[in-house]
Design a protein around this nucleic acid. Structure first.
Lengths: 211, 211, 211, 211
DNA sequence: TATGAATGAGTGTTCATTCAT
DNA sequence: TATGAATGAACACTCATTCAT
């Protein structure tokens, strides 16, 4: 971005068109596709507009600059996965399966598509100082776990300390992320899920044993 | 028109640089500094050369292109931390401290400086398809652990499966990475170290209990 | 560090250029002028754009790269002269003058302006493997001559062989080219024209005599 | 050549080394090869030096700058062909063959090798204002013809005017050049030679007839 | 004399962004 | 609101040439 940097978060125009949402969606979709198949270096606003079937001027009607597109996508992605995991932890129908396992499963599934694109989005968000923003959904899940600790933690266990929760949640989240990025073969295998559940349960038991 | 700026100017060639290593080092140092303080967007070869006190031509005498600099740095960084952790696991003098704790400590220390720069280096390596390359040092540490499992694992424990080792090593590595990037206050605190050790020990105990 | 030179400067966009043709024409004109007066070494896209009164970006909107400009110009030049010569051979009003002489005259006139520029264009075309392309207009003229051989060749003469036509057409064309490039004083003199006509007629008579 | 242009013709150093000539030859050979196979765009002094097995510093000991190499080669090439044609016209043993035919043959043979390289050399010479220089060998041949007109021209013929000689010599020379550059299949065929001889004889006869 | 690392001006090209229509 | 031609700052990289050794 050689030109004058603008406040990135400043919304330019609240979409009023009937299909404003559709336009934004087309831009997101085009961006994700380019990111996924050609990488960030190949991403440019003219290409996005072209692939989205939108004029470059219209694109700038919806987003003040290029990074704003990526940032908006990143945030949406973050919320999406957070919601899925939260659902898994709470509203999920299947009561036979332990919430931890359901959450792990939701996370694996959530990270399973267009991982290159997602990675780039997260890098961009991070590069814009969004580390706190990235931490928020994880923290929200952490809070959710604490609130439902009765269902999740072993009976009579004391809940982990804040630092403990940090370690636990990041461990699960980032192992899955890493496996996704490395595109390892066993993603989606029961064994991988098992080991992650074991990581969580082991930690929680250890905590108790120590106490 | 830029015009001939210094046609017959006095030549100012700094005494021929003692050796190639020093030049490369200067380039790395300049690059790391720019990355750390201004970010990747501000990184350009002319600036690197200027800050390194090297002509742009000389820079291109050492590296074929801009990314080659970042890639070389990334690899060096990876090896460095791997060596530190391997040392912690094996050659470390302090026998009172458990190898796992020593390794965790080495990792925290290894990731502790210029984390923005390091992160960008890793992203660049990854973007160039270096995911296997990034996995290698972690795998090497995993192998080292397996070879010294007598010292590291609980007595009579069966060593983790490959997927288990994957989960365990990535968990520790990426929690520390994440904490570094998020610049959390408790990095370097005993509590953080304790929780990481607990994560490992819990996992290993859980494995055994399951068996 | 070049620094932001005109961050909030007043925008000076010349009223949107009427049409694409005018822009291309301006680019061609600027290029020809630079070539003619400063030579190929001095030709660069930024200078072309500047002299054409066009932004460098606009230039690249019309041509994919520098050579494409020269190539397009070369082709146009080729067509132009071919058309002039073809006209001289066919549609020309002045019936008193023999077609051969009219063609020679058209060629001399066609090569008469901006010869340095034209030479460089042809060299560029040639360097890009355009030798067949350069031969085409000459061959087209050769065909035209054969089709109108009744008007052009001496009565009852057998038309030259293909190799003969090659020699004849290249002889006339390249003698004029050479004279143009060497900038000889007698270009445009009746004597020069006479000698060229003599070259053609001599060849044609000789052919017949041999038969 | 972005730097200060130097007088190109100024000889830097008179080769004193026993194998100075060999060095120059190696430089010429390397240059010709690069020109022939990769073209002028790929030609750079570092590559020449490398291919010639000479250090870049040594190369600049023999030539003041890049173009001086090409210019020296061009001149040598010009002299070589001139000598061959002069020989054909005078010292050639085979008296059965008409001098004109012998000269044409020598010219075809002289232009037959490394035509791309030779073309580029001539273009370079021309670009440096060497048009007179290029004309000189042709003029020398023209003079030779006039001096030996008794052997060459038809009996009792008046020799051509200067402009006539210009047209005649350039015609032969440049038709052969063009055929070489266009890489036509019939170069070297008797028919091509015949047509060239016919061109010359036709012209000379026509002159006489006109007189 | 020879070497080759170093110099640095120069240039082709990209692409985020603007704004007249 | 939408369009897309135009803008121009920025940058990666080249290569002729120098000169300390």
């Amino acid at each position: 971005m050689p030109a004058i940097k603008k406040a990135i978060d400043l919304k330019r125009r609240s979409p009023r068109r009937a299909n404003a949402r559709a336009t934004v969606e087309a831009i997101f979709e085009a961006t994700a596709r380019i990111l996924q198949s050609e990488g960030k270096a190949a991403l440019n606003t003219n290409l996005i507009a072209e692939r989205a079937g939108v004029s470059i001027g219209a694109l700038y009607g919806y987003f003040p600059n290029k990074d704003a597109i990526l940032l908006a996508m990143a945030r949406r992605e973050l919320d999406l996965v957070r919601d899925r995991v939260a659902d898994a932890l709470t509203r999920e129908a299947n009561a036979d399966i332990h919430p931890v396992r359901r959450a792990v499963r939701a996370l694996i599934k959530g990270y399973g598509t267009r991982s290159r694109s997602r990675r780039i989005l997260m890098e961009t968000l991070f590069a814009h100082g969004g580390s706190e923003e990235m931490a928020r959904p994880v923290n929200e899940i952490a809070n959710l776990i604490l609130m439902r600790s009765g269902d999740i933690l072993p009976k009579g266990a004391t809940p982990p300390s804040p630092i403990g929760m940090y370690v636990l949640t990041r461990a699960v989240d980032s192992v899955i992320r890493t496996a996704t990025y490395e595109n390892v073969a066993f993603i989606g295998s029961p064994a991988f899920e098992d080991e992650l559940v074991r990581l969580v349960n082991g930690y929680l038991s250890e905590r108790n044993r120590a106490a």
